[in-house]
């Protein structure tokens, strides 16, 4: 699957390792189950390690271990399964995870922006995806009401820093 990060296609440095597979050298992605079972051996390796979470696995279960991971992959088995959005926010805001959060699975073009707002910064996309489409999708909406993981200024912040005086005037004129 092609991978997009920072608005560009990038190479995927991580190899998916199945639970029964022997550990190779190099950067790998393991399941939560394997992490729990072989935590010490995995930590002793000398290469970046990433964790993949299925949509029913909360990152809260890994707690402070989160900082051992170079990347956390959130699986979206169906585009309708929106748990990953909450997991991404928990990773960024509660666990202060600074590494890459990657979305994989069934992801629609029109979900990239929401995902990015929630703190997901890498996207596995369908072969044939055009980078222009990705960039467009991320800029189709530019004004946001809610604070989220992306720390973009919200409407509230914009209103009350830059527009509070003119707003009050227009209310009075109603």
């Amino acid at each position: 699957m092609p991978l997009i990060k920072n608005n560009e296609f990038v190479d995927n440095a991580f190899r998916h390792i199945a639970d029964e597979e022997a550990l190779p050298d190099g950067a790998i992605v393991v399941s939560l189950k394997r992490w729990h079972a072989e935590r010490d051996a995995l930590m002793a390796r000398n290469a970046p390690i990433a964790l993949r979470l299925s949509s029913d696995q909360s990152p809260e279960a890994i707690g402070a271990d989160v900082h051992h991971f170079a990347m956390i992959e959130l699986e979206f088995p169906k585009f309708k399964d929106g748990r990953g959005y909450s997991w991404a926010r928990l990773l960024r805001q509660r666990l202060n995870f600074k590494g890459e959060i990657r979305a994989s699975g069934d992801v629609l073009r029109d979900q990239w922006l929401f995902m990015s707002r929630c703190g997901i910064d890498a996207f596995e996309v369908d072969p044939g995806t055009r980078i222009e489409d990705f960039r467009t999708a991320l800029t189709e909406q530019t004004v946001f009401y809610q604070p989220a993981s992306d720390r973009v200024a919200t409407v509230l912040e914009l209103r009350h820093k830059t527009h509070s005086s003119s707003q009050r005037a227009s209310v009075a004129a109603e």
């Binding site: 399964d81 929106g82 009401y145 809610q146």
Partner: peptide
């Protein structure tokens, strides 16, 4: 209404 409009986390609820 404003908080819930295009809420990035809660647009694909169960």
């Amino acid at each position: 209404r404003q908080w819930s409009t295009f809420h990035p986390e809660f647009s694909f609820l169960p």
